[in-house]
């Protein structure tokens, strides 16, 4: 449990004069559920894009799954999974086609893809839906499937960008069951959310305000630190002073 899979040191991204992410330093351990919170415009997306090897930092260092964020971006991409609320699966492919497609992209053998897709379909209760277009599935199922596809190649880390937005309360909880079981298997979860009850389900949380990590601790300690009853209050306390607004 003690292996460190994300390590950043003063990671910074500038766009001209604008510092989107300002000297971000933190570590995440294997199997940890790490909540990456912040107001709109705080710099979460910029930071996440750097961690996924999609955007080159202006300065600072980081290793993701043991790989350097400047020189080994292709290796990083092979060792992480990613899902967002907006894009995750191909709507005009069927359930099984999506599984095969993403399995292929990550270089999993046909034999393994077959085995994995059977267990996955069984687990999610999608037996009668395998030949249906993803577009026809309810959002909740889509998101559960997208998550399972994102960890099909057993990545070290999975990045989840608002995975439960707009999902009904029952499915939202089932989604977190999937997160817990992935974390039990040693997969590190890096998740953003606007639901403050979900912040409580994380082992540790970072709060980003105006490009800077303002607080980082367990939910319990953060509440103590800010003498707050709920994570909602902690968030409000930290984010209300934010100067930047937007996405």
């Amino acid at each position: 449990m003690n292996e460190i899979v994300i390590k950043t040191d003063k990671l910074t991204k500038r766009f001209g004069n604008f510092i989107a992410a300002n000297e971000i330093t933190f570590e995440v351990k294997a199997g940890e559920i790490f909540g990456f919170l912040g107001a709109n415009g705080a710099g979460k997306t910029t930071a996440m894009r750097m961690l996924c090897g999609l955007s080159k930092p202006s300065s600072g260092n980081a290793t993701i799954a043991g790989f350097d964020i400047y020189k080994e971006t292709e290796k990083i991409k092979k060792n992480i999974g990613y899902m967002s609320q907006k894009f995750s699966l191909y709507e005009d492919l069927t359930v099984i086609e999506n599984i095969r497609f993403f399995g292929g992209i990550y270089g999993i053998s046909d034999k393994q893809i077959n085995e994995k897709s059977n267990t996955l379909i069984e687990q999610l209760g999608l037996k009668n839906e395998t030949k249906k277009l993803v577009a026809s599935l309810p959002l909740g199922w889509k998101q559960k499937l997208a998550f399972s596809v994102a960890i099909l190649h057993e990545p070290k880390i999975v990045f989840l960008d608002e995975p439960t937005g707009g999902v009904d309360p029952v499915t939202r909880r089932q989604f977190w069951d999937l997160i817990y079981s992935a974390s039990d298997r040693g997969i590190t979860i890096f998740v953003t959310t606007h639901y403050m009850d979900e912040a409580e389900y994380c082992n540790r949380i970072s709060m980003m305000v105006d490009g800077v990590i303002k607080a980082l601790d367990t939910p319990t300690n953060l509440k103590k630190q800010f003498s707050a009853d709920s994570m909602d209050e902690v968030f409000f306390e930290l984010a209300r002073g934010a100067k930047r607004k937007g996405d």
Partner: peptide, 13 residues
């Protein structure tokens, strides 16, 4: 129609 979807808690308030 869903004016606050994807908006952080402070802006929602």
């Amino acid at each position: 129609d869903e004016p606050t979807t994807g908006v952080d808690t402070v802006s929602r308030k």
